[in-house]
Structures are given as structure tokens and as C-alpha cells.
């Protein structure tokens, strides 16, 4: 479903991605790990189409299409979802209305009718309960004044409501206490289906105690330097990233 081939990209003339190869099939969950500053968020942003990055080489195919040609909202409408490392505050924009607008934008793109108020309310309440997001926060402005954990739960709620084809989670686990971490993991596990691809960016292996990845990749210095199974994550936990970087440099 997602095929990244030799992707290189730079920011302000500085090369960040130096040839990334990655393939995610429907039904698979891949974890991307790596030290700070290795380019994980850069990769996630480029997949979502954020401005400010220049792709200097390589290609990305998503559901058979040239992903990089699509506008940000077109990618979203084709089922690509990014849970952001730093969810953005939208003061004055009601959280529930935002979610509903978003759902309807995706539904319209699929040629479906807009969701009726009743089923929307039912769904949003049920899913808010699942991610343990206080219902009061549904009535507040999007992320405005939310705690770090609340923001992340809100991202998971959006993901659950929007039912993406490909979900990318950028360090959704960072800065969470163990309860919140489990909630995020539950949210991810609930969404695992045979049709859905997932790319989970994480700095720590502890999330993988709750999520069984099909593959683990290590992104270091703009390249995937190692791919493996779950055991790779455990090895990283034990040994850190240093040895991989040395091996990669050698």
C-alpha cells in the first residue's frame, strides 16, 4: 500500500533524508525507531505533504498513486492520517465540530453522504470513552489548553473516527504515563485490520510491549540502517542506538 523508494529530502538546503526505502502492506504494522533528530518526523511530514521540505530524489507510491503529487488534503481524503508529535491548538474551533467537518470532508471525497448528527454523537461519545478522553474536552476548542496526554488521546480519537487506510503515528507515545500509553496502544490495536496499514514512529521500545509490530526499522542519520522483527526493538532497548550507527558508518 505504501512504497518508499530511495527517498531523499532536505530542509533549508540541509539534507535530512538520505535515501529511505520502506514498504508497508495492507494489514501490516511497522514501527520506526531511531535517535532524536534522525529524520523520523521529517519522513512523517513528507508523507503527509507538509510544506517546507524539498524532496530531492526518490519516489513514494500510495495505493498505486504517486503520493508526492497530491495536496495535503487530497492525501487525507484518500485515507492517509498523521497523528502528530505536537498536536496543534485551534482556539475557538469546537473540538466536535472540527471532527465532524473533517469526517464529512472525507466522506464527501468518497462520495458518501454527510454523517447525521445522531450517529455522529453516538460514535464520538463511544470512542471518546474508549480513549478515555473526558467528554468535556469534546466541547472545548481543539487541543486548546489540553494537557500533553489529552492532546495525544484526542489524536487517537480522531484516528478512530476517521478510520484511515494508512495511519502514521509520530511519537504518539512520547511523554505519556503508563496509563495513557496503554490507551494509545489499545487505540492502535483496535484499529488493526487486514485492510489497514500502520506506521508507528516511536523513540522508545516500551510502546512495543503493548503493540506487536510486524516489522521494526531503525532510522538513523536519514537512512533505514536496520530492519527486523520485534526482537530488534528489544535489542535496541538493551544496547541503545550507538552500535547501529557505528555499524552503519563502517
Amino acid at each position: 500500500m505504501l512504497a518508499i523508494k530511495n527517498l531523499t529530502a532536505s530542509v533549508d538546503g540541509k539534507e535530512i533524508l538520505k535515501g529511505v526505502d520502506l514498504q508497508v502492506e495492507a494489514g501490516e504494522l511497522h514501527a520506526i525507531m531511531g535517535p532524536n533528530g534522525s529524520g523520523k518526523s521529517t519522513l512523517a511530514h513528507i508523507l503527509a505533504g507538509r510544506d517546507g521540505y524539498s524532496v530531492t530524489g526518490g519516489e513514494v507510491r500510495y495505493l498505486g498513486e504517486d503520493l508526492l503529487q497530491l495536496e495535503v488534503e487530497e492525501r487525507a481524503r484518500q485515507g492517509l492520517f498523521l497523528a502528530m508529535q505536537y498536536p496543534v491548538e485551534l482556539p475557538g474551533v469546537n473540538n466536535m465540530s472540527f471532527l465532524r467537518e473533517s469526517m464529512n470532508a472525507l466522506r464527501r471525497a468518497r462520495g458518501e453522504p454527510e454523517i447525521d448528527t445522531l450517529s455522529f454523537m453516538k460514535q464520538v461519545k463511544e470512542k471518546a470513552r474508549q480513549v478515555k478522553l473526558d467528554e468535556k474536552l469534546l466541547k472545548r476548542s481543539v487541543n486548546a489548553g489540553f494537557s500533553g496526554g489529552e492532546k495525544k488521546r484526542n489524536e487517537i480519537l480522531q484516528m478512530a473516527m476517521l478510520e484511515p487506510k494508512l495511519a502514521i503515528l509520530d511519537e504518539t507515545d512520547s511523554g505519556l504515563d503508563i496509563d495513557a500509553l496503554r490507551t494509545v496502544a489499545d487505540g492502535v490495536n483496535r484499529l488493526r485490520t487486514a485492510e489497514r496499514g500502520m506506521l508507528v514512529v516511536t523513540h522508545y521500545q516500551r510502546l512495543l510491549d503493548y503493540i506487536q509490530p510486524d516489522k521494526v526499522h531503525v532510522l538513523a542519520d536519514g537512512r533505514i540502517v536496520r530492519s527486523g522483527g520485534k526482537e530488534l526493538a528489544l535489542e535496541l532497548e538493551a544496547r541503545g542506538y550507538g552500535w547501529l550507527l557505528e555499524e552503519a558508518a563502517a
Binding site: 503527509a48 505533504g49 495535503v72 488534503e73 487525507a76 492520517f81 502528530m84 505536537y86 472540527f98 476517521l162
Partner: peptide, 15 residues
Amino acid sequence: SEDQLFYCRQRGLTE
């Protein structure tokens, strides 16, 4: 902010 616009667009809304 650009962050806000990107966030909204990532959720399927036009700018």
C-alpha cells in the same frame, strides 16, 4: 499559523 493550516488540511479540510 502554518501549523494550524497543515493540521486542518491533514484532517481533510481545504485551506
